[in-house]
Amino acid sequence: MALPAPPDVPSIPPPTRTPLFEGSTQFRNWRFSQQQLHATRVSLNRSAVTAIRNTFEADLPGSSSDIQFLESKEELLLVKLYVTKISQLCGHFRFPEEVEATGISYLKRFYLKNTVMDWHPKNVMLTALFLATKTTNNPISLEAYTSNIPRTSASDVLDLEFLVAQSLAFEFAIWHAHRALWGLWLDVQDLPNAPNRDDLQKYYDTAVQHVRTSRLTDAELIYPPSQIALACLSLADSDLAATWARAKGAESVLQIIPSIKDMILQDGQVPSVEVVREIDRRLKVCKNPEKVVGSKAYLAKKEKEEREAESKRAKKAEGVRKAMEDGDPFGDELNGAATAIAALDDDD
């Protein structure tokens, strides 16, 4: 029998335990509503179109008028196709599932900060996957990686590595639905009245396939991995998923499950190659000329950057020289200042 606490003793609330997942960068920074995802993509697409149009016009007025720029949903289709390419490559290299899932998450997150008109997903995909091998502790040498992928050089992968890492905000840790499903698999084997082992194995294998399908969708950007895993188990056997949720006292989660299931079933289709090929053909025309190595706009941009860097270096050198000239050769406090400036590296 719980007695009410005497009034003069402040009742101490029981310590609340926050789930570990809620401390992760994935929970804090990479969860969105469907509306947010849509708005982000549309606005990225719009600003890219505006910027590229301006670049074209600067080069030759009127030249952008008949260009058919990509829409955000077309960009998304192209990215989706490259998600499937990651899976193919991982099969080829026999990478563990964690590498595949991480590479795919990186690719999707990258295109929440960038557009395909600036950076074509082919090389971004290669870089995202290479980065994933390292962040998941399955490193392979760049040489071994590129030599096994046709028409790929080391610079195709490395040139973008910094950009990809930056776009991910250096948040490399990913919580995956397939791990959550593994936890469910261990749990359901302990349920009272659990189905027999063969059936369980069959449900699990089916659920794993659904998790793989879910990687083609936005599910991981909207729902936590545990809910995606439960939805996949529910797609394999809805009774088993419901029994598990009741056994855990988590019936409320079952309300969310149908919308995840719908998303996996509707959006989990591999895009048709013809459609994507057509998008890619149009992309050749409308991609940002500043990013095309060797183009006029690219060279102009490089030259501007070089000029800025040069004037910065000159300013710094002047500062050092002045400090040296003013100082006594046998050393006074000004020499200290000179060395302090010299100690800072070139690129600061």
Binding site: G23, F130, L131, K134, T135, S141, E161, F170, E171, A173
Partner: peptide, 27 residues
Amino acid sequence: KKLKVGQFKDGLDMSAIREVKYLRELR
């Protein structure tokens, strides 16, 4: 802490990646 990254033939090196990955998550 400024890590020199350009010098590695395999790109970002593992110890930098590990340090960033875990310190990003741990608080």
